[in-house]
Simulated scan of single mutants.
Amino acid sequence: MSARAASEPLPTIHSVTTLKAEQERPHPVPVPARAPEAPARKRRSAKSLLLPILGIAVLAAAGLYGHEYWTEGRFMISTDDAYVQADMAFVAPKITGYVARLDAEENQHVKTGDPLVTIDDGDYRIALAQAEAQIDVQNKTLERITAQIRAGRAALGQAEAQKTAAAAAATNAARTADRTAQLVKTNVSTQAQLDDARTALDQANAALAGADAQVESAKANIGVLEAQYQEAESVLPNLRLAHDKAARDLSFTVLRAPYDGVVGNRSVEQGDLVSPGQKLAAIVPLNKLYIVANFKETQLPQLVPGEKVHFRVDAIDDAAFEGTVSSLSPASGAVFSLLPPNNATGNFTKIVQRLPVRIDVSEAALNSGKLRAGLSVIVDVDSRTAPPSTTASLH
């Protein structure tokens, strides 16, 4: 044990208890000094400046909105239930066959008459050649009958000449018989000579009758030939119709664009077997697009044909186009639906109906090339642009 330790007095019980109590006593928490009041004053002054500015801004915005509503908005009839439409044509074959070639691709621009799909035309070319051959055969038949008629008329002429000769011979025989009879009365000629004269007269008359029969036979033969010609000629129009049908079927092997547009929804490939009425593609005329806007029935009193329209397309940013109200549908969309509502049964809940309105798009909008059928549109109709006659009727 060191001398220092020996010299230090031992702690008493009281001192240990006091020391322990001082250690367990909570120490006072230091109070932070108060911040200076200058920043708080600055914040209050900033708030006092900001609130009037915000108030002025709100009032300015409200005034601007009110002015815009009073000058423009209250005259606008708006709806977002509107879509771009097109009277598109569906390309479908009229004949059956295998697709030999695809002449137009998906989304390709085509002109009127451009080929779209080519169907194998082998069978239809054979049918056309067969129809042409039948017409040629019938024409040859008509030529043969015509030649026979000419021959019959020549035979008729020969028979008529023979009849003329027989008539002359009969006249001569009659005269000879008369002279012989007179001579017999004067005993100049014998009875035998008179008999020979009368026999010759009978023969001449018989020959004349035969000539008449030959003339009638020749005429009848000509009539038969002319009837055959008419019969053969009556068959010719049917053959020509068959020829025209075969040519028409052959023309159907190439499906062409009915008007200018874009090919879409193509559902055929090379080698497919197609049948009449099967939809192969659609032609959308981008130069004939229009808008169908469904307005509420409460908006209809101010809607008339001829009003100017401003519309925006959801798919095109920062672009406004113009149009014109063309016509109003004769009935609401619910009437044309597959299952129109029957409000005469069950509980009735009134629902505002909508009427389709057609809007013609301006040439500038069409020429932009940005419009597509089916796009959503926001339409604003300016009721101030209504034609004067319709405006008077509204009031």
Rank of each mutant, 00 (worst) to 15 (best):
T112N: 13
Q130S: 14
D103Y: 12
E106M: 11
A82Q: 02
I95T: 09
A167V: 04
A170I: 03
A86P: 02
E143C: 11
I145M: 04
A131I: 05
I135S: 12
Q162P: 03
D103P: 09
G113L: 06
E132Q: 12
D121V: 00
H109L: 11
L142D: 04
L142C: 06
A127H: 02
R144M: 15
A82R: 04
R175T: 11
A177Q: 00
E106L: 14
R101H: 14
Q158E: 11
Y83M: 09
G97N: 02
S78F: 03
A129K: 08
R153N: 10
T176F: 10
Y83N: 11
T112K: 13
T141F: 06
I95L: 05
T176S: 10
Q148K: 07
A173E: 00
Q158A: 14
Y83I: 12
K163E: 12
G113S: 06
A89Y: 06
T141I: 09
N139V: 13
R153K: 14
Q158P: 04
Y124P: 05
I145Q: 03
D136V: 13
A129Y: 04
A159S: 08
P93N: 04
D178G: 08
A104N: 02
N139I: 12
I126A: 15
G113P: 00
A159Q: 00
A159H: 01
I145L: 14
Q134Y: 08
A151T: 13
M76L: 13
K111W: 06
D136N: 12
A177L: 04
A167W: 01
A177E: 03
T118P: 03
V117N: 00
I77H: 00
A168W: 02
A174K: 06
K163G: 11
A177F: 00
I95G: 02
T176K: 03
V99G: 03
A154G: 09
R125F: 10
T164P: 00
R144N: 15
T118A: 13
A89M: 10
V99P: 01
D123Y: 12
H109G: 09
